[in-house]
């Protein structure tokens, strides 16, 4: 089980990012848990200034925009 956090204020890009991870996980058959973090203090606490950001198992793996699908696949396979 991989635990993802999508950091963002709830804007469109953040929703798209969460959906992208969910869809990829389903396609690859990987079990994931996705949590959306909208609290600004928490988001900046991760050191992320440009949203959406992605946290995988407690570590920031991406910041600033919707991630590339290939990258998402790499996270899921790792």
């Amino acid at each position: 089980m991989k635990a993802f956090k999508v950091l963002g204020s709830g804007c469109k890009n953040c929703i798209s990012t969460a959906k992208l991870i969910e869809d990829k996980a389903k396609a690859l058959g990987v079990a994931v848990e996705i949590e959306k973090v909208t609290d600004m203090a928490a988001i900046l606490g991760f050191g992320v200034m440009s949203t959406p950001g992605v946290v995988l198992d407690g570590k920031v793996v991406h910041a600033g925009g919707i991630p590339q699908p290939d990258k998402v696949a790499d996270w899921l396979r790792a």
Binding site: M40, A41, L44, G45, F46, G47, V48, M49, S50, G53, V60, H62, A63, G64, G65
Partner: peptide
């Protein structure tokens, strides 16, 4: 007030 309490630590760069 909460704004002043936020500590960012290591800033993650946009790729």
């Amino acid at each position: 007030d909460y704004v002043w309490k936020i500590r960012m630590g290591q800033v993650v760069e946009t790729e």
